[in-house]
Simulated assay, not measured.
Amino acid sequence: MSEKITGGCLCGKVTFEVNNSFTRFYFCHCQQCQKITGSAHAANLFTTPDAIKWISGQRLTKQYDDPDRDFTVVFCSECGSGLPFVTKTSKTLIVPAGSLNEDPNIHPNDNIFWAERATWYDEGTNANQCAGFPS
């Protein structure tokens, strides 16, 4: 397993390197993460704030801090891809797993906020699995 792995956004304008020493990996099913991702859940890795080195495009990142709830989202202002961010407490760096180019050092630990999961999620896990678009 590599000590450092790379990541970035879909358009490639924002890139980073992060220490591959994640301590937690959660699938978060809360309603906020459903809205942030446009999907059933977020897949977030947790590590220390100093674990990241921005390589390019950091000026293209945009941050949204919800004024009423304790959550943040950072994304590329060009393509909208989710990107790493430091929590409001400044104690944790959260890295969206889908932003990584290589596999992290850990597998998912927990499905959190399970009671808030999308009503269609359970059925979706039983849907056909296709290598590409269905024929």
Rank of each mutant, 00 (worst) to 15 (best):
L100F: 03
F27S: 03
P67L: 12
C11F: 10
L83D: 02
S2D: 09
D66E: 13
T23A: 03
I36T: 13
G57P: 13
S99A: 04
D110W: 02
C28N: 09
I112V: 09
F22K: 05
G80Q: 03
T37C: 04
V95D: 01
M1Y: 08
K4Y: 09
F75K: 02
C28F: 05
Q32S: 10
I55C: 15
Q58G: 14
G38W: 13
C28T: 06
P96L: 00
D66T: 13
L100T: 05
V95Y: 00
I106P: 03
E78R: 07
P84I: 01
Y64Q: 13
G80I: 07
S56G: 14
D50R: 15
K4W: 14
E17L: 12
G7R: 06
R69K: 09
R24N: 02
H41F: 04
L60G: 04
C11W: 05
S21H: 09
E3Q: 10
R24E: 06
V73F: 08
D103Q: 14
T37V: 12
G7Y: 03
A43F: 01
P84R: 02
I112P: 11
S56M: 14
G57I: 10
G98C: 02
C33W: 10
G80Y: 01
C79F: 06
N109A: 02
S39D: 04
Q31E: 15
A40P: 08
G38R: 15
D103I: 12
I5P: 07
F25V: 01
D65P: 11
T87S: 02
S77N: 14
Q34E: 10
Q58W: 12
C30R: 12
S81C: 01
P84E: 08
G82H: 08
C33Y: 11
D68R: 05
K91T: 14
G12I: 13
V86L: 00
V18R: 05
V18N: 04
C28W: 08
Q63M: 11
K4M: 03
F22G: 02
T48I: 03
V14S: 15
S90K: 13
K91A: 02
S39P: 06
L83G: 00
G8D: 11
F22V: 01
H107I: 05
H29K: 07
Q58R: 14
S21I: 04
F46P: 04
N111Q: 13
N101W: 12
F46Y: 11
V18I: 06
Q63V: 12
G82T: 02
F85N: 03
Y64F: 11
I112Q: 07
P49S: 11
P108C: 06
S90V: 08
S21C: 07
C30G: 08
P104N: 05
P84N: 04
